[in-house]
Design a protein around this nucleic acid. Structure first.
Lengths: 245, 245
DNA sequence: AAACGGGTATACCGCTCTGTCTACCTTCGG
DNA sequence: CCGAAGGTAGACAGAGCGGTATACCCGTTT
């Protein structure tokens, strides 16, 4: 049973790993959910396979039946992070909060503002993994870069919709603001999102975009039904919680 | 005997670690120099004590005579990074390239532009260490945050000199641009520094600062005597290079 | 009924890492 | 001359890591 697994276990999450071709196992899902929590908060190098299987309540053999090696789990984690965080949370939340493209760009930092205030703020897993993996050729590192690029694609689409002349350059600039504010938040600056928003505002205006002020500070924040943050409903502290969490 | 050690071995680098009170040993200096290269390029978690002592050509016993534990070496490394990178390179280079405070702020990104193009670009060790150390209370993590704050102090001084109204807020914003561009460069965007510079320019103007254009693009780059980059003259590939570098 | 696929539990291997310990060598000052 | 300080070399302990192997259990399918 276990209350509501993070993802409905439905379809193939791509990159075939499972031995017999079926990646929709319950055990696999528990592992992935446990890995999501642990990896996103403690980093992929800081969490061992033993911790994950203990937290997932799964046998080691079962783990290695679904993932050839730890690296494969990490790659699967990054993909799930994109589903849950990038798409299921950030993009959804932004799209929900504003309609005009330039307002959506600004809304990113309003979403970040809430995020940075969370006591269990984890930072951006893509950045974290990228930076804790030194070797340039690494699979995991490249995957992180790809997922970051996909965030940039979202920004670029918004820039195009806003009629900005050089959407790629603009998206990369906006991404610099996002990444910079995330690192600043990790450093402890809880106001980082507001600062980044202000920079973004001047940047938009310099770009010739007319941005109708609907609150320079906080948003009206009427109804916002989505998102209980991008965290999957973690399976309630299963089984042996391992020794040294 | 070993060509020009990175620092003249002269005075106390604070935080007494050495057993008998003298931290000006030659062996200690070799260790610190080796650690600087390895840590800054491969991360502090990715480099073991064995690699360091092999690269430094020093016995293990000697290492532990000077550093109670690896953590103490890491802290010493961060301090040296501040001396060599923050002060000896970034601040010196910026101060050398421009005189007016607003020009110095912009010069940061011109210095970064050169830096990002290096093939052995290592990123900001303070950010790297901060992000690869998950636990919030950690000594090393806090030390990294402190060193980052000291960079911000430099920015704040420049902001004050430029007559900017809220220097702390401005410094934090500028730092967001710096950190964001560094991460972007780590991701592979070699133009990140120029993008950040452009953002900074609009930000300065929005702040009411008159910035006389002396080249919107590249600088005149006349004489610039300082800096062969912040890298200490690494002791030429000493001793046993260990097995698996 | 038998076979099989997937799950559990646990021991184990080999490697790496931090840190200690033994033993010897060199230099230098009283 | 001798002893202490600081150095070298290398074995070693103990822990954690990723990954494998053994043995058993259970439900479904054939």
């Amino acid at each position: 049973m276990s209350n509501v697994p993070s993802l409905p276990v439905t379809p193939r999450e791509s990159t075939a790993d499972s031995v017999s071709g079926q990646e929709n196992s319950e055990a696999r899902e528990r592992v992935l959910a446990a890995a999501y929590d642990l990896f996103s908060h403690k980093g992929v190098r800081g969490v061992g396979v033993d911790s994950i299987i203990a937290s997932a309540g799964v046998a080691k053999r079962t783990f290695y039946r679904h993932f050839r090696a730890k690296e494969n789990l990490v790659l699967a984690f990054l993909q799930r992070r994109e589903q849950l965080w990038t798409m299921g949370w950030l993009e959804a939340e932004v799209t929900n909060r504003a309609a005009a493209p330039e307002q959506r760009l600004l809304a990113i930092f309003e979403v970040f503002d809430d995020w940075f205030r969370r006591d269990d703020f984890e930072g951006c897993s893509f950045i974290n993994v990228l930076l804790e993996t030194a070797e340039p050729g690494n699979h995991v590192r490249q995957a992180s870069a790809t997922h970051l690029a996909r965030i940039r694609d979202f920004l670029q689409r918004l820039a195009e919709d806003a009629g900005i002349s050089q959407p790629d350059d603009f998206a990369r600039k906006w991404h610099i603001l996002m990444k910079g504010s995330i690192v600043a938040a990790g450093e402890g600056d809880q106001l980082a999102a507001r600062r980044a928003r202000e920079i973004g505002l001047t940047l938009l205006r310099a770009e010739g975009v007319k941005v109708s002020r609907q609150g320079d500070g906080k948003r009206p924040l009427a109804e916002r039904p989505i998102s209980t943050h991008h965290r999957p409903v973690t399976l309630s502290s299963n089984a042996v919680p391992s020794k040294k969490t």
